[in-house]
């Protein structure tokens, strides 16, 4: 479905990604793991075209996306939920969703406001509320809901659990699991290993912009030594 090959990216002259490759199968959840600064967010941004890749390829169903403008990449079918959420604070919940709305994709049930409210019931009661007056967890839900309104073929979820209270993290995991159950392909990035373990099929461990490990998520969870090597202090 989504194929990333030998992706390099720079911030200014800082070389952040050193040839990241990964492959996401349809309906699968692939989780990028790694300590902060490992390059997870940059991988997401490079795939999305927000940080133009300096080399490498990004293909969605065979179509080359590297070097395209973000709005083109979004239209082709990548839906990006940034780590900082970046909801439009001056807009209401309903308006935020409207910004994300795009025509439906063939052969899939289109996302509507009602459908995202069914996924995140907490949002349904605050349609007219300015996004600036929402809690961190609600903003995260809104950020995901807004991107879903674009009917993406692949969802890029950058650290959805960051800074959230444990009970909200669990709810978030439930939502991601529900999306997966509907057949959504998801590229996830996480620092919270337990969150990742509940939803991910595949794990790609990054360190300093280099892929250090690729494997099944359950296998990683069983292998304490492997975990300690890449993820612990």
């Amino acid at each position: 479905m989504l194929q990333v090959q030998a992706l390099h990216a720079h911030y200014g002259r800082a070389h952040i990604l050193h040839g990241v490759s990964l492959a996401l199968a349809p309906g699968e959840v692939l989780c990028l793991l790694g300590r902060n600064g490992a390059g997870k967010s940059t991988t997401m941004k490079a795939v999305m075209g927000l940080v133009p890749p300096s080399a490498g390829s990004v293909r969605l169903e065979g179509r080359e996306l590297a070097g395209q403008a973000p709005h083109v990449i979004a239209r082709v079918g990548l839906g990006y939920v940034p780590e900082e959420r970046r909801i439009f604070a001056g807009l209401t919940v309903a308006e935020n969703l409207e910004v994300g709305r795009r025509p439906p994709r063939d052969g899939r049930e289109p996302w509507t406001a009602d459908r995202v409210f069914a996924l995140f019931p907490a949002l349904a009661s605050m349609r007219r509320r300015p996004a600036s007056r929402m809690s961190g967890g609600e903003q995260q839900m809104l950020a995901i809901a807004r991107t879903l309104m674009g009917n993406p073929a692949v969802l890029l979820l950058d650290e959805p659990s960051e800074g959230l209270a444990p009970v909200i993290v669990e709810r978030m995991a439930g939502a991601v699991a529900a999306l997966k159950a509907e057949g959504m392909s998801i590229l996830l990035s996480e620092q919270n290993l337990l969150f990742a373990a509940t939803v991910a099929d595949q794990a790609v461990v990054l360190e300093s912009g280099v892929v250090r490990h690729v494997g099944a998520m359950p296998a990683l969870m069983r292998d304490a030594a492997l975990r300690a090597r890449f993820l612990s202090v």
């Binding site: 973000p70 709005h71 940034p82 970046r86 439009f88 001056g90 807009l91 910004v99 994300g100 795009r102």
Partner: peptide, 16 residues
């Protein structure tokens, strides 16, 4: 209004 706040995010949502 969204673009006034965060142009890049609006583009990432597929708006030209």
């Amino acid at each position: 209004r969204a673009a006034t706040q965060d142009r890049e995010m609006v583009a990432a949502l597929g708006v030209d």
